[in-house]
Amino acid sequence: MTSEELRVVAFTLKVAALGTLLLVPPGLLAALLLARYRGPGKGVLETLLALPLVLPPTAVGLVLLEVLSRRTTFGAWLAVRGWDIVFTWRGVLVATMLMSFPLLVRSARTAFEEVDPHLVGLARTLGCSPLAAFFRVTLPLAWRGVLAGVALAFSRALGEFGATIMVAGNIPGKTQTLALAIFHESQLGRDDRAMVLAGVTVALAFACLWTTEWLTRARDRRLAS
């Protein structure tokens, strides 16, 4: 690989890792609320959250572009503070985060739903605040699903294309991620370079998912012993 290609790989990994990290707190909170909340509006909320999964990523990107551009109040407010999002690395971050969010939430929500609420109640009687009960009982028991969600979100962030290109463009050395670079090289007829980059994405996604599997299985072995 060329140094330019290595830089693209490093940039993609960095943005995906940062995005996933930033997603975890709000993602787990949303998942917990959806798992425990029983009331009006739940269906609408769930559907809204699932939308990015089924919409064309370019459509999501277009909406994001409109909301964040300097023409809107919010976009202008951000720009004044020097937090330009559109056509910067931050645009890549926001686009990949939005596309990854539902994957994390769905996986974690299912995992939280499977935790027996009686165990959480018992933890409370044993002196845990709601927050402590979450960290000592709910999260360790839902660990497998949460980890799977994090892995999916990270993998999705590695491969995001449509929303990213709408919000951040495809600027080599600035906003170009692996997915964008593959497209770019292929458009320029450099299929061999595109294949190298595609190989790298396969290896990264494989490593990420396999590590998740391995961690989960190691834990199952421990609990059964």
Binding site: H118, L119, L122, A123, V137, L141, L223
Partner: peptide
């Protein structure tokens, strides 16, 4: 509780 409710982890 009747089912003991031990923390399985």
């Amino acid at each position: 509780p009747q089912a003991a409710g031990l923390f399985p982890h």
